[in-house]
Simulated scan of single mutants.
Amino acid sequence: MGGEAKKLPRIDFSEVDPSAPGGQAWGTARGEVMDALATFGCFEAHYPALAPRLRAELFEGAVRPLFALSADAKRRNCYGADRPFHGYLGDVPGFPGYESLAIVDGTKDESVRGFARLMWPDGGDNSDSFCGTVVEAAQRIFQLEEAVRRMVMEGLGVAKHHDALSASMWHLFRMSEYKAPNAAEKVVRYGAHQDTNWLSVVCQHEVAGLEMQSRGGEWIVVQPSPTSLVFMVGNELRVPTLAVDAS
């Protein structure tokens, strides 16, 4: 891994209103989305609505205190034995230095408050500030994710199914921490993989820890930006390539 020669396609959503489909800005962005997903399977979205102020509050004011909690506290983030990957992940074999927590339906105030009560049973400032920040950030991200999903369905000619698909979906808001290596060397904390969902949206903080593989096999280092998100196609949206041996 580790090539920096290429960059992901960058799409400007600053003039797109996620709540108002249609219009020139929407159509232009939709064309760029379809082209980027067809050629790269991912793109960088310039999205000033998720402002640097909110990002700072999310990472420094909400996420950092969360990961400072004890391992026993973080293990309370559990959605049952039948959904082991929906909650806390830590000390996972093969993933040294990786730890994460997740909130099912993290765009909903009641879901985030339920998570906060598990982490901070006694309440307090951490719990209140965490809830407000996470709900606001998750909703901003979800607004753009839904707009991109609608654009994809329009581009595929199946826009009439958007509402039914949206009603059947749920969202996982996952917060992850990757421990820095002790030396100035590159260390893979979470190995190469494909996501199984429809779309993944990644918001990086300061460190260029994400790499994407192009169709040509080249690894592209995704530089973090204070105004961008990274969108990636999951396996639910991928079209399998079929081959026939006629020999």
Rank of each mutant, 00 (worst) to 15 (best):
S176M: 14
V244G: 08
D82Y: 07
P226E: 15
V187R: 09
A25I: 02
E146I: 09
L172M: 11
L172H: 06
R75Q: 10
R189C: 13
A159K: 11
V112K: 03
R76V: 04
F85I: 09
V239K: 15
G41Q: 06
V201G: 12
L210P: 12
L8Y: 01
A73N: 04
F173Q: 08
V221P: 10
P226G: 11
N182P: 12
A147N: 04
G97Y: 02
E44L: 09
L229R: 05
A5C: 05
A102I: 03
L237W: 11
A36E: 00
L242Y: 11
P48V: 00
S176G: 10
R215S: 15
P48E: 03
T39D: 13
G97K: 03
D128M: 02
D109K: 09
E44I: 10
F43E: 00
V63I: 13
D128S: 10
A183C: 05
H162F: 15
I103Q: 01
K179W: 00
P226S: 13
A116R: 05
A5L: 12
P65N: 00
C131E: 02
S166D: 14
L210C: 11
I103P: 01
R75A: 11
S168F: 02
G234M: 02
D109G: 01
M151D: 05
F115R: 03
A183V: 13
G80N: 05
G124M: 06
E218H: 13
S129Q: 10
W219S: 14
E145I: 00
E44N: 07
A20Q: 13
G31C: 06
S166K: 12
S228C: 15
R75I: 02
E211L: 09
L37R: 03
P52N: 07
V221E: 12
G87P: 04
G234P: 14
F231C: 10
A62I: 02
L8A: 06
H46D: 08
I220E: 01
L172N: 09
R76I: 03
R53Y: 00
I220F: 05
A208C: 07
P84D: 11
Q139E: 04
S111I: 08
R55Y: 00
D91N: 15
V33Q: 01
Q139F: 00
S225Q: 10
G22M: 00
D125M: 05
L54H: 02
P21D: 01
A38K: 12
A20R: 14
R76F: 05
V33Y: 00
A49N: 06
S70T: 12
A25K: 07
M169Y: 14
G27T: 09
M175H: 03
G90M: 03
T107Y: 07
F67Y: 01
E211W: 05
R149P: 07
E57M: 07
L66W: 01
G23E: 02
V33T: 02
D122F: 08
L156Q: 10
M212Y: 11
E146Y: 06
P18L: 06
H205S: 11
F43A: 06
T28Q: 11
S14Q: 10
S225I: 07
F40V: 15
H171N: 12
S225K: 04
M212F: 14
M175G: 09
A36I: 06
V201S: 08
E110C: 09
R189T: 12
A159D: 08
A208M: 04
E177N: 13
